[in-house]
Design a protein around this nucleic acid. Structure first.
Lengths: 196, 196
DNA sequence: CATCTATAGAACATTATGTTGCGTATCAAA
DNA sequence: TTTGATACGCAACATAATGTTCTATAGATG
């Protein structure tokens, strides 16, 4: 009988999840509790319990909000090097300059012990990888790729290296790195003898 | 005045941290508490509090234990392809078949909000990367590498892809993948015209 | 053997986490 | 505007988790 679109429900959910994300980012998943969100937002603890009886549900919803970013329409007008630089530049900025860079590791950790979270992060990454695939497909249409270019491997590599450097190795992502990285991928993708 | 090498102290620490690692692996960092370790080991809760007044210290110590694996002496007798297959095969097995594959994401998550943990995982990864570097250095000594081989980038890539696939994308690490991955790296490293 | 100290266990204090009932405010519909 | 439904805040409460302290005992040291 509950009306799912009651503005009071929507507002509470939105306010609570925003706060949950902020706490997630700054203090980690452990600090995301009904009590901490109540303190931060003024939303009553009992209201939060009514919305999310289990704290895991609340955390999972926060993960979902963090992992449902605007869909990107990758540039595919070519050449490959420029398209990749544009797309991976967005990824670099997301990791360096948005909450995603701090929230992603929390989700990855949750994925190790929670299948729902694992599906969430896996699907997110596969979507991200599909953007790169679009760029390669377009390059192939334009005849820029070598016949035997290992496209799936290059997609892995394109995304894996920035995530690894940022989340795991603590290495910087800057424009110098970006250019070298795209250079490397293009060297493997493009027809021999067309090196710039 | 406490004797740091009292066998009772050492035994308690060891037993407790082993249990902490097991809980960390199976239930996640949230489940690692004085109480859960006491239940699992029979070590009294008060004793655990005496050793680690703060739960974060206990978790950090568990992280340290997990991240201090036996030092590897990489094979460097060549050729590059064989050495890399051997070394990355060990990494693959570690991720697939040992607790490290489940514990690593917990540490990565902790690194986002704890500088000590961040240093820990960064140093661990840099050590791992240095093994790869040894392999490349030996290949260079043997004259197998192209003059302009981007060694540091190749080290990143060699490690980043398996970690990304396993921890973040949920993609398999198998022997087929390993061979393709090493092929790709060797293509970028070796002198042109020496492709197998 | 004599001394020192780590441990187990219990008792206790303090927080954290859930639950419930009720008055008030907001919403949707008539 | 009125009416019925319901989400909310708040306070009181129950329960569980976490942290502290004390004592008797067992193990370690010399």
């Amino acid at each position: 009988m509950t009306k799912a679109d009651d503005p009071r429900l929507l507002a509470t959910r939105s306010i609570a999840l925003d706060a949950a994300l902020e706490i997630l980012r700054t203090e980690g998943v452990l600090a995301v509790t009904h009590a901490s969100i109540s303190t931060k937002t003024g939303v009553s603890r009992s209201t939060l319990y009514r919305h999310w009886p289990q704290i895991d549900q609340l955390r999972t919803d926060a993960f979902k909000r963090a992992a449902s970013p605007p869909v990107i329409a990758p540039k595919t007008n070519g050449p490959l090097h420029a398209d990749l630089t544009w797309l991976l530049g967005i990824l670099m900025s997301a990791l360096n300059d948005t909450p995603w860079g701090q929230i992603a590791p929390q989700i990855i950790s949750g994925a190790a012990t929670n299948n729902e979270t694992k599906s969430l992060i896996n699907e997110f990454m596969h979507e991200r990888m599909s953007y790169v695939r679009e760029v390669f497909d377009a390059a192939e249409q334009r005849g820029e790729l070598a016949i035997d270019a290992p496209i799936e491997q290059l997609i892995d590599t394109a995304i894996a290296v920035p995530y690894f450097r940022h989340l795991i190795a603590g290495l910087p992502l800057d424009h110098e790195w970006l250019e070298s990285h795209v250079d490397m991928i293009c060297r493997l993708a493009e027809k021999p003898g067309e090196a710039s």
